Amino acid sequence: MSEDMRVALVTGGNRGIGYELVKQLAMNGFKVIMASRDWERGHAAAQKLKASSLDVSFVVMDVSDTESIRQAALTVNEQYGRLDVLINNAGVYLDGNEKLVDMEPSILERTMATNFFGAYHVIRSFLPLMKKHGYGRIINVSSEYGAMSEMSYQGAGAYKLSKLALNGLTQLIAAEIKGDIKINAVDPGWVSSEMGGPSAPKTPTAAAESILWLATIGPEGPNGEFFRDGKRIGW
Rank of each mutant, 00 (worst) to 15 (best):
W39Q: 13
W39F: 12
W39Y: 15
E40P: 00
E40V: 02
E40A: 05
H43K: 10
A44H: 07
A46N: 00
Q47R: 09
Q47W: 00
K50H: 03
A51Q: 15
A51N: 13
A51Y: 04
S52W: 03
S53E: 11
L54D: 00
L54M: 09
D55F: 05
V56Q: 00
S57F: 00
S57N: 09
S57R: 11
F58N: 01
F58T: 01
V60N: 11
V60Y: 03
M61N: 03
M61S: 01
V63L: 02
S64H: 06
S64M: 07
D65I: 05
T66R: 10
E67H: 15
S68W: 05
I69C: 05
I69N: 11
A73F: 01
A73S: 09
L74F: 06
L74Y: 04
T75G: 02
T75M: 03
E78P: 10
Q79I: 01
Q79N: 10
G81Y: 09
L83A: 11
L83M: 07
L83V: 04
D84Q: 14
V85I: 10
L86M: 13
L86K: 12
N88K: 08
N88C: 02
N88F: 00
V92A: 09
Y93C: 11
Y93F: 14
L94H: 05
D95E: 14
D95H: 13
G96D: 14
E98K: 14
K99E: 08
V101F: 07
V101T: 12
D102R: 13
M103P: 04
P105M: 07
S106W: 04
S106D: 09
S106F: 02
I107T: 15
E109Q: 15
E109P: 01
R110V: 01
R110Q: 15
T111A: 08
T111H: 11
T111R: 08
M112C: 06
M112W: 04
T114Q: 02
T114Y: 03
N115E: 12
N115Y: 09
F116W: 11
F116H: 13
F117Q: 04
G118W: 06
A119N: 06
Y120G: 04
H121A: 06
H121S: 07
I123H: 09
R124N: 13
L127Y: 15
P128Y: 12
P128Q: 11
L129F: 11
L129N: 13
M130N: 08
M130R: 10
K131D: 01
K131E: 09
H133Q: 12
H133M: 08
G134P: 12
Y135Q: 04
Y135S: 01
G136M: 10
R137H: 04
I138L: 11
N140W: 09
S142W: 08
S143Q: 07
S143P: 07
S143H: 05
E144T: 12
G146W: 08
M148N: 10
